[in-house]
Design a protein around this nucleic acid. Structure first.
Lengths: 243, 243
DNA sequence: CCAAACTCTCAACAGACTCTGAACGTGCTG
DNA sequence: CAGCACGTTCAGAGTCTGTTGAGAGTTTGG
């Protein structure tokens, strides 16, 4: 379902893909994340238990571990600590329940590098993962987290969008959608794909919101300019440089 | 959660990152500090016991040791003494329990260069660490611990802030917050990130304090001037030069 | 030991954002 | 050309986020 984004791929100094280990006992979440990460250019693996995770980590030597706090066998925090002992330079992204202050405190004091609250969107996790790895020095010599398509530029650190140098105000959802389109420029994305990637995974609504937000984006991005967002009837939407 | 700040990174004369050794028997604290230091550009390692610390120090030859006074095996003071024998030029930052005046006196007379009381915030420890290493001559040719964003200037040694040359009175918390924002200028920081970095690690409150202090800062920094502090709804806050 | 400053909680308000529903276009297809 | 499916857009309700003022509790400094 997710798609690659060769233009913004992170590269290890040795030329290989960054390695990511996903640990969550809900197979659905693990699979979705592994799948999304793979198509985003990461070498991703999944584990459903803390023990499996530690065993895998020993062999895979991941650069990043995405870790659910709640695991059936070992506590996520314990796993984290073991990981740090084994390989000190690993980054950790925590998955926690919303509003769980305890988790937050535990996460910080356990040395998590960042965390995302459930329910999250895949794009959200991907964005944070890229950010962590870039900061950890696994990025290809790049300043900031920028992506460019034609005369459209997105700065994912500053959460800013520019068209022909002109700044465009976007809401959080609009930015997430545009960001997903930009990462997959020139590729048609179905409404289902978009819904899966940009909206929270427990979002119950239908694909109508996608159409709505495409409409919002058009007003802001394409208003009075050569169109970059195109409809492919019966298939989905594409973002590409204006002719 | 911590973020890099390449613009203010300290560099060893030999070009490598400054080496830091963190020693605390609470794995959570050690992990959090190691993690934060790493993202701030240090080559950090952690040890949970005094013996491990001495062993590691022998191999790593750290420039700075962050040392808990209370250790299970050896006394922190004893560790400090041994360290000084081994390498005279190492800086030492003590971690002590709050209100433990005895610790402070003992620490200073034992040759600690500075100390921080628990519970601390990550930014606090990072700031002291930078300060110590700079004074020890490991800074990239810089005068003072200054950071500038647009017409806003922070002097972290003097704990002073200026906007367009005009001095601005800030409380301790306000300064810490502004400092964190400045170190990550043009990057959106979530309230959770800010809370983790600026407030004490055992702070149980919610993110509302962040909003409150942002409001205070705005009154002092942006009052009647082009705004530098911006809200990114649903994401967080950014500091950037006024357009 | 008092006064002032500071930090944080609470509560009310304002406004932005997100999503639903319905009406309206537009392009396919028979 | 009629009918239908798909897509677009408008309008509005509800929710959520962020802002601010007032004040209690705590710490600091004289």
């Amino acid at each position: 379902m997710p798609t690659s984004q060769a233009s913004n791929r992170l590269i290890r100094p040795d030329g290989a893909q960054p390695r990511v280990l996903v640990v969550d006992d809900e197979a659905g979440i693990t699979d979705a994340l592994v799948s999304a990460l793979r198509f985003d250019g990461f070498d991703a693996r999944g584990a459903l238990t803390g023990r499996d995770a530690l065993a895998l980590a020993g062999r895979q030597q991941p650069d990043l571990v995405i870790l659910d706090v709640m695991l059936p066998d070992l506590d996520g925090l314990e796993v984290l600590h073991q990981l740090r002992i084994a390989s000190e330079h690993v980054c950790v992204l925590f998955l926690t329940a919303r509003d769980s202050v305890d988790d937050r405190i535990a996460g910080i004091s356990a040395g998590a590098d960042d965390y995302v609250t459930k329910p999250f969107s895949l794009q959200e996790v991907l964005a944070r993962s890229r950010g962590l790895l870039r900061r950890a020095g696994l990025a290809r010599g790049k300043v900031g987290n920028r992506i460019q398509v034609g005369d459209l530029m997105l700065d994912e650190d500053a959460h800013e969008a520019f068209r022909s140098g002109e700044r465009i105000e976007l809401t959080a959802t609009e930015f997430a959608l545009l960001s997903y389109l930009a990462h997959n420029a020139r590729r048609v994305l179905s409404k289902a794909q978009i819904l899966d990637q940009v909206w929270h995974y427990d979002f119950g609504g239908d694909a109508h919101v996608v159409e709505l937000y495409i409409s919002y984006l058009r007003k802001k991005i394409d208003a009075g300019r050569p169109a970059m967002i195109h409809t492919v009837r019966g298939v989905g939407y594409v973002l590409k440089p204006a002719a």
